[in-house]
Simulated assay, not measured.
Amino acid sequence: MIKKFKYLDQFIFIPYFILSIFGTLMVYSASSYVAIGQDKNPEFYFIKQAVFVCIGFLISLFIFALKYTALKQKKLIMNAILVIVGLLIYLLIFGKEINGAKGWLDIGPVGIQPAEFAKISVIWYFAYIFSRRQQQIVRDFWSSMKQPAFLFAVILLLIAIQPDIGGAAIILFIGIIMIFASGVSTKLGITMGALGIAIILGVVELVRVFGTKLPFLQPYQYDRFVAFWDPFEVSESAGLQLVNSYYALSRGGLFGVGIGESVQKTGYLPEPYTDFIISILGEELGLVGVIVVLSLFSFLVLRIYLIGIRTKDPFGSLMCIGIATMFLIQASINLGGVLGLMPITGVTFPFISYGGSSTIVLTISIGLVLNVSAMNRKQEIEDNN
């Protein structure tokens, strides 16, 4: 492991480290008032997040230290997928409903979200399957996709009916991008992309016309669409979060009101340390603070995409593309909800928002990318020698 550190990609590790530390501090700032209101220590969520970040850091180092070939073991990958499917089924049957969804599994004092771990499991599985079937995908796309598409559909369905629409949407986009990157023809890729956009627009129009008459739409989910269409019309109910998000961002202005000085986190903006932590960041550090964070995060995502493009091994390439897509889509959905560009889905912002399962999955992903990057660097040095 010590020898492998000379291959550590600083352009991945440093942005990840800075975002994780800064995110932990923002969790403290955004959660302290809420913790006091819950009769807890002001540092309650800060300490938990710090523990999650430390555990994730150790896991990422362990994954980085593994031999690259160990990541491609079929038995390990399939067992991970089966465990995730089993946990998702268990949740639907025995899971405790929280805020209208069965998404949490309690293991002693710790709660985990299997849907979060499903994201990295799908990426890992698709990278393995597609890298082994590249020639088959080019020759006969539909035949080569039967098995992975079925398993993918099962996972999507199990997450969607929790219901966790945000998580399902992220996994759906990950799957689509990884299929595009697997070797499909440009014509087929464009056709599938257009079909996906048409389906999304069609669902939105169905919701607008039929509302809660639709069998798959819960009342609270319809309220999110109503808040998206006209948040100020329902500012005292469904639009409360979005309206107060606007107030927070507006109050922050260019340079913010100062770290710890947010007003919206004191009971006005629900979920200030999870879904809407970017609003608190904007209020306290202003537009400049938001741009700095988004720039650092964008650099990290682009760097991972670059590693994926440069990696000659198909498995590593697809792994990096899938992980970069997960980061990008998750951040986009969160920002879309915060800014009112799309309905609120309860998706957190990577590395900044509070969340144990999310933090662990994100750091596992960083460990995988660092492993792929180290393999590339080692190969380049050997080739040059």
Score class of each variant (00 low, 15 high):
295 S>V: 11
30 A>L: 13
177 I>G: 01
105 L>T: 09
258 G>H: 08
105 L>P: 05
152 F>C: 13
353 S>L: 10
221 Q>C: 12
325 T>C: 00
362 L>T: 11
330 Q>M: 01
346 G>P: 08
31 S>E: 08
119 K>G: 04
243 V>R: 11
233 E>H: 05
237 S>F: 07
335 L>S: 05
189 G>L: 06
384 N>I: 14
343 P>F: 13
260 G>A: 01
105 L>V: 10
287 L>M: 08
236 E>Y: 06
76 L>R: 13
208 R>N: 14
223 D>N: 15
366 I>R: 00
8 L>T: 03
322 G>L: 00
4 K>L: 04
305 Y>L: 12
97 E>A: 09
352 I>Q: 11
181 A>P: 05
116 E>D: 09
291 I>T: 11
220 Y>N: 15
359 T>K: 13
14 I>P: 09
56 G>E: 07
115 A>Y: 07
137 I>P: 00
285 L>A: 11
227 A>N: 13
342 M>V: 10
86 G>S: 14
10 Q>C: 02
151 L>K: 03
248 A>N: 12
372 V>H: 06
239 G>Y: 07
380 E>P: 06
230 D>R: 10
149 A>C: 08
114 P>D: 13
117 F>I: 08
12 I>Q: 05
130 F>I: 08
123 I>K: 00
2 I>E: 13
231 P>N: 08
369 V>F: 03
108 G>D: 08
249 L>E: 01
86 G>H: 10
134 Q>M: 09
85 V>E: 09
138 V>I: 15
206 L>R: 07
371 N>A: 06
223 D>E: 15
378 K>C: 01
324 A>P: 02
215 P>H: 03
68 Y>S: 04
137 I>W: 00
13 F>L: 10
356 G>S: 09
216 F>E: 06
218 Q>L: 14
197 I>G: 02
298 S>D: 09
182 S>F: 06
314 P>Q: 01
105 L>M: 14
274 T>C: 12
53 V>D: 03
158 L>F: 11
91 L>V: 11
297 F>T: 00
266 T>K: 15
177 I>N: 03
333 I>M: 01
295 S>N: 05
246 Y>I: 07
102 K>V: 01
192 M>R: 04
227 A>T: 12
96 K>M: 05
94 F>R: 13
164 D>A: 03
58 L>G: 14
9 D>F: 03
384 N>K: 14
314 P>A: 00
204 V>F: 13
332 S>H: 04
71 L>W: 02
196 G>Q: 10
218 Q>E: 14
311 T>P: 00
152 F>Y: 15
367 G>I: 01
370 L>T: 02
235 S>V: 04
356 G>L: 06
265 K>L: 11
344 I>N: 15
303 R>E: 11
324 A>G: 14
359 T>E: 12
3 K>E: 09
267 G>R: 05
25 L>P: 01
38 Q>V: 07
378 K>P: 00
8 L>S: 01
68 Y>A: 07
246 Y>L: 12
